[in-house]
């Protein structure tokens, strides 16, 4: 066994000790970073979606420049890859995947879910999107055109889902509460 094949837990402990001893990284920096990542959650993306559903100017900004739209909601985007937002409509349904690794809009959705990182999801999304959506109990009419977005490069992509019927007159808080992680990746659609 080569050194690098050592179990991950042991590697982490050793690497961490060495990096700290060499003043390359501090434990405080790791803790701070973890806190920042823990603060990012689908709830943040959901707030953006709810605002876009109720504020046409914000929606226009969101589709034009997702990073600015996130910053307008006080979501820290410094050092993050640019965010792009794609709108679902009666005609088009967007589904996000990263077939090469697991690129995910972490700034607005937090840690990628387990399924997003799986070989099955990464393989099937680009080839059998309707079959894949079925496993998430999502059925789209045949007339809806699916855009599968393979997130291969510098952007991170988020879906602006369609506002469901039956939510007329709802507050942004009520609306944000029905938007789930999967709705903003395109594997599910919000419902009431």
């Amino acid at each position: 066994m080569t050194l690098i094949e050592t179990d991950g837990e042991d590697l982490l402990a050793a690497i961490r000790k060495l990096l700290v001893a060499k003043n390359l990284v501090t434990e405080a920096e790791i803790a701070e970073r973890q806190q920042a990542t823990d603060n990012a959650s689908p709830g943040q993306g959901a707030k953006m979606v709810a605002r876009a559903w109720t504020d046409p100017a914000y929606k226009a900004l969101m589709l034009e420049d997702g990073t600015k739209a996130a910053e307008a909601m006080n979501i820290p985007m410094r050092g993050m890859p640019p965010l792009g937002v794609l709108e679902n409509s009666d005609e088009v349904h967007n589904l996000i995947v990263c077939t090469l690794c697991s690129c995910y809009p972490r700034a607005v959705l937090g840690y990628p879910p387990f399924w997003y990182k799986s070989a099955a999801y990464r393989s099937r999304a680009v080839r059998d999107p309707r079959g894949l959506l079925g496993e998430f109990r999502t059925t789209l009419p045949d007339t809806v055109k699916i855009h599968v977005v393979d997130s291969t490069a510098d952007y991170r992509w988020m879906v602006l889902p369609k506002r469901p019927a039956g939510t007329e007159g709802w507050s942004v808080e009520q609306l944000a509460a029905i938007v789930r992680e999967g709705d903003m990746v395109g594997v599910t659609v919000p419902s009431v």
Partner: peptide, 27 residues
């Protein structure tokens, strides 16, 4: 330069639906 490029599903897969498409960032 980086672009979003679209591909009809039936261009990529024998069983692909012509109406669905892939959207991919390519250099």
């Amino acid at each position: 330069p980086l672009y979003h490029v679209t591909f009809p599903m039936n261009e990529l897969w024998p069983e692909g639906r012509a109406n669905d498409e892939l959207v991919v960032e390519l250099y």
